[in-house]
Structure formats: structure tokens, C-alpha cells
């Protein structure tokens, strides 16, 4: 067993975990933060994307021990301080950027990083950045639209959903 200590969504947490505990297991089973989803568990689908020390990573392909000392943000930490939805989350709702919703946490976490790195991405840049996030409902169109809208760009020219 290894003791790991980290900050998750602004809160210090400390747990004893076995060496092979994945970040997804740590968040979901130990901390009960079940917003981080496990889709493929092979780092293809991106439903488990979280931020570790400011970088978007796939929580299914990282051990909890590797995040010792890190600042971690999960989908549960993305809303505004008063509990209202962030601009990006609100855009997903407004533009119906989801169908079944399973991939949504990962989409939001990835999109948040994209907008940090590139505040006004083109549609192509958004689709390219979402390469590691799979929506099995194939609802990409409105996801892309939501991200464009969240970046403050006009989405009226985007084909109707």
C-alpha cells in the first residue's frame, strides 16, 4: 500500500491505496467522485479526462500514486463557485451538446483545456483537439457547436442540428 495525498477540486485528500490503483478508481471508488466516467478503460475514449497540474490526462491510464502531490480537477470541480454552470457547461446545455451524456464529462474537461490553450478555436481545431474523446452516440456536431459558442463565436452559420 502507498499513501497518496493530493488536492482534488480544491480539497486536500489523503488515502492509502494499492500500487495498481488507477486514478479513475481513486476518484470513483475512494472519493466517490463518479462524474469521471470509465468508458473503454484503454485510453481511447476520453470519458475519464481530468486535469492534473493543469494538464488534461486520461485518468484510466495513470496511477493514483503518480498524482501524489498534484492539483487535480474533475468534472465536479468545473461549476462556478456559487454552484451555477460554467460558461462551457452552460453552452453544452444550451446547444444540446450531448445525447446519452456518458462522454460529456470528458468532453467538457478536454474542451476546457482547448479553450485555455486556444481561446478562439476554429471548427476544425475543435474537431482535431477532440480526437481522443469518443461520443458513441456520434453527437459530435452539437458538442463542437457548444464549444464554439462557449468561446464566444457565432454559431449561426453552423448547419442546423
Amino acid at each position: 500500500m502507498t499513501k497518496v495525498t493530493m488536492t482534488v477540486n480544491g480539497k486536500a485528500v489523503s488515502k492509502e491505496v494499492s500500487g495498481n490503483t488507477l486514478m479513475t478508481e481513486f476518484l470513483r471508488d475512494e472519493l466517490r467522485l463518479t462524474g469521471t466516467h470509465v468508458g473503454c478503460d484503454t485510453s481511447q475514449c476520453g470519458a475519464c479526462v481530468i486535469h492534473v497540474d493543469g494538464k488534461n490526462v486520461k485518468a484510466c491510464t495513470m496511477f493514483a500514486a503518480e498524482a501524489h502531490g498534484a492539483e487535480v480537477t474533475t468534472i465536479e470541480g468545473m461549476a462556478n463557485a456559487d454552484g451555477s454552470l460554467s460558461v462551457l457547461q452552460q453552452a453544452f446545455q444550451d446547444h444540446h451538446g450531448l445525447q446519452c451524456g456518458f462522454c460529456t464529462p470528458g468532453m467538457v474537461m478536454t474542451a476546457a483545456k482547448l479553450l485555455e490553450e486556444n481561446p478562439k478555436p476554429s471548427e476544425h481545431e475543435i474537431r482535431d483537439y477532440l480526437e481522443g474523446n469518443i461520443c458513441r452516440c456520434t453527437g459530435y456536431h452539437n458538442i463542437v457547436k457548444a464549444i464554439l459558442a462557449a468561446s464566444g463565436q457565432d454559431v449561426s452559420g453552423i448547419a442546423a442540428e
Partner: peptide, 9 residues
């Protein structure tokens, strides 16, 4: 290589 999250690890 891979995707943005993979490239960060």
C-alpha cells in the same frame, strides 16, 4: 502522436 491527453503523459 495519439491525442492531446495522451501527449501530456
Amino acid at each position: 502522436i495519439g491525442d492531446p491527453a495522451v501527449r501530456n503523459r
